[in-house]
């Protein structure tokens, strides 16, 4: 199934450097419509007013964490089907389990490489 790379992608991270890195890596794989948010609350606000085909979020942010954002997304009737990839340094089993139980589409542990990002995005969007 062909992936629509013109979709809007929302990347969420409280480190501006990380947002810039992910944006540039997405650009390399031809996702050019990329928007940014610096925490879960800002992301949720953008998601509720915008139209995004994919969310790529960090976990450890304040005031709303990536997990809380994921839970809010999955409880929102309009947003619940939005593919959601967690990219985080949180690599404990309980983190992965909690994210999966909250409905994460895929999980990437930092530090990650461009190939892993591309592979996970393709896998998630193929099943969307």
């Amino acid at each position: 199934m062909a992936i629509d790379k013109s979709m809007n992608v929302l990347i969420v991270d409280d480190y501006k450097t990380m947002l810039r890195i992910i944006r540039n890596l997405l650009k390399q794989i031809e996702f050019n419509n990329v928007d940014e948010a610096s925490d879960g609350a800002e992301a949720l606000s953008k998601l509720r007013t915008g139209n995004y085909g994919l969310v790529i979020s960090d976990w450890n942010m304040a005031p709303m964490t990536g997990l809380e954002l994921l839970q809010e997304v999955r409880q929102d009737n309009r947003l619940r089907a939005t593919p959601f990839i967690m990219i985080t340094a949180e690599s404990k089993t309980e983190n992965v389990v909690a994210a999966k139980q909250a409905g994460v589409s895929n999980y990437i542990v930092k530090p990650f490489n461009a190939e892993t990002l591309r592979e996970k995005i393709e896998k998630v969007l193929a099943h969307a």
């Binding site: 976990w59 450890n60 964490t65 997990l67 340094a89 949180e90 690599s91 404990k92 089993t93 309980e94 983190n95 992965v96 389990v97 909690a98 999966k100 895929n106 999980y107 990437i108 542990v109 930092k110 990650f112 892993t116």
Partner: peptide
């Protein structure tokens, strides 16, 4: 901090991407 906010693990203790893929 919330119990799930552990931050980066030391390399010897951390799960790698393949471990996480298998868990998922």
């Amino acid at each position: 901090p919330a119990s799930l906010l552990n931050g980066p693990q030391l390399p010897d203790a951390a799960m790698g991407q393949s471990d996480i893929d298998a868990l998922l």
